[in-house]
Amino acid sequence: MLLLGPQHNVQSLREGLVEVGARPPYVLVAAGWEEREAETAALEKHLGSRVANLSLWPACEEAFEADHELRAAMFDRQDRLRELGRLYRVRLAAELEALRELLSSVDPAAPGELVGPALEPAFESLAALDEHHLGRVRALNDEVFGAVCTRPSLARHREVVARRLADAGTLLVAGGHVGILYDRMRLFGVTEALPEQLPVAGWSAGAMVLTDRILLFHDSPPQGPGDAEIHGPGFGLAPAVACLPHASSRLDLDDAARVALLARRVGAAALAVALDDGQRVLSVPGAEGWRFDGSASILGSDGVVVTPTRGAAR
């Protein structure tokens, strides 16, 4: 398993694939690129190899055009997901405001005997809210995808996906729109058809969907409060890690309180890993934890961002 940061400016995928012993033939999911899904020339040039594109984007478009009931079910899910998100954010804003206020006057690494004990229940409350929302989205996803995945409009391409994956040497999952990527992979049963022990590499959004839960984040978006939020479950192929691609541009890594808050928030269940251009972490069969290559960083619950030395395992 290989998790990488953005590959636009610094391409490190090929090197990472060697490290995890991944081999061609490469099968690609790039549905997060949406209409640009077929633009794989730069990737193939970097790999020095052709990739078999699963083409989930056009397959989904065709299914939506042909099957109005499928489309209606997905629209309904979208509406319900949006309402769940709205309900979640109402409470999330209050929970985060309380934590920011508590953290604002202390060193996150040593909050002191008065503030410290007040932080614990506040983090527990936030964790419970995140879990609650995650559970509701998971239930909604299971209900809707469970109902639609057997529809004939999806059957043919689900078979194509399964066949290509059966012959694959490695699965590659590209970044892009993380919600669209997850939905398309789920509709066409990508992870269900994944042969055991098949090496998987994902970058940016592609890394995020492989983890247990998809965490959306941006400290200073063009609009809105910039409160990181749980989007929903991931596929759980890369357990106990939270991927934060574009970390240095989307997060204020010099703000110890914000770093501590985010790290503590995911830290109970996962390692918060900042993945900037070309950075990567990997796990290899038989080895414990995640191995760092000396570039990717970990957000610490003390508010400090550390870069493990090359080869360090966490």
């Binding site: 953005p6 636009h8 997060g32 970044g175 892009g176 729109h177 993380v178 919600g179 669209i180 940016s204 959004a205 995020m208 959306l216 941006h218 978006p221 063009p222 609009q223 809105g224 989007h231 691609p245 574009h246």
Partner: peptide, 14 residues
């Protein structure tokens, strides 16, 4: 426009 209709930037990690 961005205040009334925030875009999908939040969801995109290229």
């Amino acid at each position: 426009l961005t205040w009334l209709f925030p875009g999908p930037l939040w969801m995109v990690y290229e």
